[in-house]
Design a binder for these strands. Structure first.
Lengths: 233, 233
DNA sequence: GTCGACCAATTGGTATGACCGCTTTGTAGC
DNA sequence: GCTACAAAGCGGTCATACCAATTGGTCGAC
């Protein structure tokens, strides 16, 4: 072979990843571009096809390249699901301060509630109402309640008509689900959620953005309160 | 070998990725957990070590597992840089509606400006002021102006004391940089930015949250206006 | 008994070479 | 000019071998 096998500190494949990543980040490689064949790329970087494929798998995992068998390697745009999944796991597994997560949620959802009141359609409003019915019916079933609660808030973000908000909110779920479980076992919190949700539904249905924002702010404030008191004891 | 080599539609390695990913997403595998050795995992999934390693590289690319040579495979939490990079590329390469991106920016930054006024320290405030000086001095150098502009807004999010806001704002840059370039070549926009930034600095330094929010809202509204008029012609 | 040094087994990283099946492309035949 | 088919190209997988780093246990010195 050309050079000595020297794993040493860093992986050969990581150099390839770094090289291609740089070219993607600074825009020299754009989605849709075709990459040279694996065997050529391997020669170009002076590594074996094995190492080269490791690098490709890494980039594929990042959602930056895709390969169809028989055809070649193509640079691709990061899919929304991939971005959401990554952000979701980041928020879930780094035990960030709940206040930080809640603050982001508050900012996004209060605005989304207002936007939903302005831009939401009647059909989605019905789904929103149905989601709250489901929450009411969930009773002791915490998992069901959590799912219904999330679905309600997700629908609000959908009604806001901005896919980025929906993506962020869905990702935020990663940092919220634990607290949601803690809260919704409380009878009082469950009841509060049903009532607040109803107020939000009413405001959105009436296209009253101010009322929708106020109702959402009030609701989230209560949610934070339940967590806060639970944390203090 | 055990079974026929049937690439067909889906990759063998993708099944492994899907399997482990499911276990990570539903929490059966948590950060810090050690995975069996590659040779054992390969046998467990009925694939060769090559295919197994493809799957591992994919998950490594997602930031979900890390491997040290000699030691084993470990499940890891998604690093903030990884989440930011992914979100950045998603926002940059999916040509989303600029209004959507701007709306998110507005919501986040207006709030961040208020929070910065309440929680920011004096030293970072000086850096903020310095960033605006740099913007003023940038003159015709668009790249330098864009960098200074971004640094200013980044510092505001840092002063807000919520790392999630900083992460989101940095990612948002992916969807904004193109418009920033378009705007900052305009003399009027450049001047507006300098003045608005100064108003923001003053409000933050005076710990006047309401004024900071108003100044930021005004600034972003102007930014949107420059883009909007440029788009109409 | 404790601690340090040392050795062997384990583990990930890379290389090589060989097939398979799909895709693409070029060409021959109509 | 168009279809049909064959060949070349490409990614996906497997098997095997070896390297370097880590790990864990053993054994000796104190």
């Amino acid at each position: 072979m050309a050079e000595d096998t020297a794993p040493g500190e860093i992986r050969r494949s990581d150099e390839v990843v770094a090289g291609l990543l740089r070219r993607i980040l600074d825009g020299r490689l754009r989605p849709g571009d075709r990459l040279p064949a694996e065997r050529d790329l391997a020669a170009e970087y002076g590594v074996s096809r094995t190492a080269l494929r490791e690098a490709m798998s890494n980039l594929t995992g990042r959602g930056l390249i895709a390969s169809r068998g028989g055809s070649g390697l193509r640079v691709t745009a990061v899919a929304p699901e991939r971005a959401q999944e990554t952000l979701f796991l980041y928020l879930r597994d780094n035990d960030l301060d709940y206040r930080s997560i809640h603050e982001v949620r508050e900012v996004i959802e209060v605005h989304a509630a207002g936007a939903a009141a302005e831009r939401g359609d009647a059909e989605t409003a019905r789904l929103l109402s149905a989601a709250n019915d489901e929450l009411r019916a969930s009773g002791e079933d915490v998992a069901r309640a959590v799912a219904a609660d999330f679905e309600f808030h997700r629908l609000v973000s959908v009604m806001a008509g901005n896919e980025i908000f929906s993506l962020l909110l869905s990702s935020l779920r990663g940092g919220l689900i634990r607290v949601r479980e803690h809260n919704l076992v409380l009878r009082a919190a469950h009841r509060e959620a049903c009532d607040s949700h109803q107020a939000i539904v009413d405001a959105i249905t009436a296209h009253d953005a101010d009322a929708a924002r106020a109702a959402m702010a009030s609701h989230l404030s209560a949610v934070f309160g339940y967590w806060h008191t639970a944390e203090q004891r």
